[in-house]
Amino acid sequence: MRTVDVAIVGAGPAGIAAALAAAESGVRTLLIDESPKVGGHLHWRISQTLTDNAGLPVATGPGPQVAAELESLLASFSNLTLSLNTVAWGLFEDRVLALASEDHAEEVQADAIILTTGSTDIAAPFPGWTLPGVLTARAAQTFLHVHRVLPGHRWAILGEGDDADELAGDLARCDVEIVVRHGSVDNFRASGTNRLAHVEIEDDVYEVDALAIAMGRQPDAELAFQAQARGAFVRVLGGYTPFRDLNGQTSEVGVYVAGDAAGIATLPELVAEGQLAGKAAAGAGDAELTRAQGLLNTVANRRRREAIERSRLTDSLNPS
C-alpha cells in the first residue's frame, strides 16, 4: 500500500491552500480530486475571485484563470503529487483512503488526511421538482461555465440569499431571461408533460424552460462520517457538520476537515482554514499554528466564528 504524509481530498480553494501549506513544510503531500482540473468551485462560481483573491497566492481574475495559476503553482513542488480524475470513495481505519479512477484502484495510507470535499446544494422538494429542466444552482453554473451549454433561455430561480443572487448575476452574463424569482417552496410548483414548461406560484403561471434551485449549500463531509468522526446537525453551518478542534482536526486523530465541508464558508474563510489544516497536518510548531489560527480569526466573520464554536471539539472529546 502506498503511504504519504498528508493526503488531501478535494482540490478546491481550501484543498489547494491545504496542499500548498503542507508541501511548503516539506512533507510528502498527495492532493486528490474527482474532476480533471484543480480549482473546484472556482470553475463554476466564476465571479468570486474577480476582485479579491481571498488569500490565495495568485492574482485576481475569473475563477478558471485563478485555478490554472494555482495548478502551475502546485506543479512546482516536487514533494506534491496531484491525482486528478480520481474518486476517494472510502475512508477506513488508520487513515486508509480508497481511491478509484477509470482504470485504476488503490488504497493509500496517510499520517494525516484533510477532507476539503466542499458542499452540495440544498434542494427542498416541491411538486414537479423531478421534471427535466429543473436543476440545482450548481448544475446550472457548471453547464453554463464549464460545459458552456444553456440549460434554457427562460429561467425561474427558486431561493433567496447570496447563492440565488450569484446565479442571477451569472445568468445575466449569459444573456438569458430571468422570468421569475421566488424565495421559498411554499405555494410553488413546477409543471410540464415530459419536461418543465411552467412554474406556478399561488395562482400565477409563468412560462419557463429552466428552473434553478438556489436555496444555499450544505457541507459534504461524508468521508469524515464514514471514518466515525463525531458531528451534529448545525443549522447555521448548513447541515451535518463534524466536530473539530482549533486546527480543523475531527474526533478521529489525524483526520481534518476544512472549508465548506466543515460548514458553508466565504472564500477567504475556507482558504484560511485550508492553510491552517495543512500546517497542522504537516506537523507545524505551536507558533506557526497560532499565526495561522490568528489569520483565520481575522478573515472569519462573526457568523462563522460563532458557528465554528458551536461545532468545536472540546478537550474531553478529543482523544489526542
Binding site: 446544494d121 421534471l131 427535466p132 436543476l135 450548481r138 440549460p151
Partner: peptide, 9 residues
C-alpha cells in the same frame, strides 16, 4: 417519469 440533469456533478 422522465428525468434529466439535476445535480450535474
Amino acid at each position: 417519469e422522465s428525468r434529466g440533469v439535476f445535480c450535474g456533478v
